[in-house]
């Protein structure tokens, strides 16, 4: 099997694991996400901490893998390709403005890109409308003259 075939196979497996993880974590229920982001729930006892636990589980595993990657593997990916982990350290306007826009949409619809894409397969109208908007928004940004790839 060529490195490119392995890369494709592993990416497919990673996508599947990612989707099942989101489902097990409760993140494919937009109401669970909204019940975390809606701080009004802290006052009336309807706040849902699930998303924080998801982050704890994910970061515990990924931080360990990242340490292994940096120290044992010296940032050399197993398939032999170049390391593409970002090295940019500049906190600039597009980073913050983009993150704020993303957050506003996330709190409005209850979907971030991953759960939206997983949910769209179920045929739920809200997920379909979200993903159409998501792709349109990405396309619009890519067409912006000043957009960086």
């Amino acid at each position: 099997m060529s490195a490119d075939q392995k890369r494709t196979l592993i990416a497919g497996a990673a996508g599947l694991l990612f989707a099942l993880g989101l489902g097990l974590a409760g993140m494919t229920d937009a109401n669970v996400v909204l019940a975390f982001l809606d701080l009004g729930g802290l006052a009336d006892g309807t706040w849902d901490p699930s998303l924080a636990f998801v982050m704890v589980g994910a970061i515990a595993v990924y931080a360990s893998a990242h340490a292994l990657y940096q120290r044992r593997m010296q940032a050399q990916p197993a398939l032999g390709g170049p390391c593409r982990v970002p090295t940019n350290k500049t906190i600039d306007r597009p980073l913050i403005l983009g993150a704020v826009l993303f957050g506003l949409g996330w709190g409005a619809g209850g979907y971030c890109p991953g759960p939206g894409l997983v949910s769209v397969v179920s045929g739920a109208p809200a997920a379909i409308v979200f993903v159409i908007g998501l792709l349109a928004g990405m396309f619009l940004y890519a067409r912006k003259p000043s957009a960086r790839s």
Binding site: G23, T28, D29, N31, L34, C112, M138, A142, A147
Partner: peptide
Amino acid sequence: AIAAPVGRPLALVGLAGLVVGYGTRMGN
């Protein structure tokens, strides 16, 4: 396991998608 946001109008969710798509690309 898969549930849509209760009470959020479809038009709002579509607009949310647009802003999420644009914002996540802008903010990398």
